[in-house]
Design a protein around this nucleic acid. Structure first.
Lengths: 113, 113
DNA sequence: CCCGTAGTGCCGAATATACGAACTATTGAA
DNA sequence: TTCAATAGTTCGTATATTCGGCACTACGGG
């Protein structure tokens, strides 16, 4: 039995949705990682890269949030998940939005340490 | 007796905070309005401009949220409040972030009608 | 066919949000 | 100075979101 894996159409993506999804530190971190290492994958990997351990179910929620905000596309790839960013699509609708957010996030992360 | 009216220092403003504050439809609308008609004021006015009526206490919360995210500066001006955007300050820390968000919001609002 | 791995769904606890009612501050008039 | 009107805030409760543990469902490999 196949799970649907809901992805909004480009025109159904909202600014509020994007901002809300990226307003969470863990989620921006995840998204940023997917966004610049394109065709990244697997949910569980992220608890390893970030020293902070995020529980499985919470991670699943985060990916769902990003997916339903239209930020990433998820496809089953065997037992794992392949998550790719939808940056270029979004950029046609809201030019510059995603880069600005990711940049700001990067800058802040650098400034912290 | 004077109320403190908390405004974060520029360096204490976070990307998450900004995104969270602007992830609410009513709040972006309010902020956008303050941002391009600079030196705008008064909380209660906003329920008039937008046909949608937002209760007083909710509006107060929204302004507090924007203020504590570092997006606006609020000063008592007689019985009213004078709210001004802190765009230029924020832009020194996170260049392009606010314009990108406001632009995206504008674009979306236009597309809706 | 069974086991290990990757994710999801469900549920209770903790947290955040909305808004009405009561309160505070400030101004202008009587 | 006292009073009423106006602009915002605070508080309390109802409601909605989020977190994370545990049990469950794919899928792939022996």
């Amino acid at each position: 039995m196949a799970r649907p894996l809901v992805h909004p159409a480009i025109k159904d993506i909202t600014v509020e949705g994007i901002l809300h999804a990226l307003a969470d530190p863990d989620r921006v971190a995840i998204f940023a990682q997917i966004a610049n290492s394109d065709a990244s994958h697997a949910c569980t990997r992220f608890s390893e890269t970030n020293e902070k351990t995020i529980p499985k179910s919470t991670l699943s929620q985060h990916f769902k949030a990003l997916r339903e905000a239209g930020l990433i596309r998820s496809e089953r790839k065997g037992v794992e998940m392949q998550n790719t960013s939808r940056c270029s699509e979004i950029d046609t609708r809201f030019p510059g939005l995603i880069p600005a957010i990711v940049d700001a996030h990067m800058k802040q992360k650098k400034a912290r340490k």
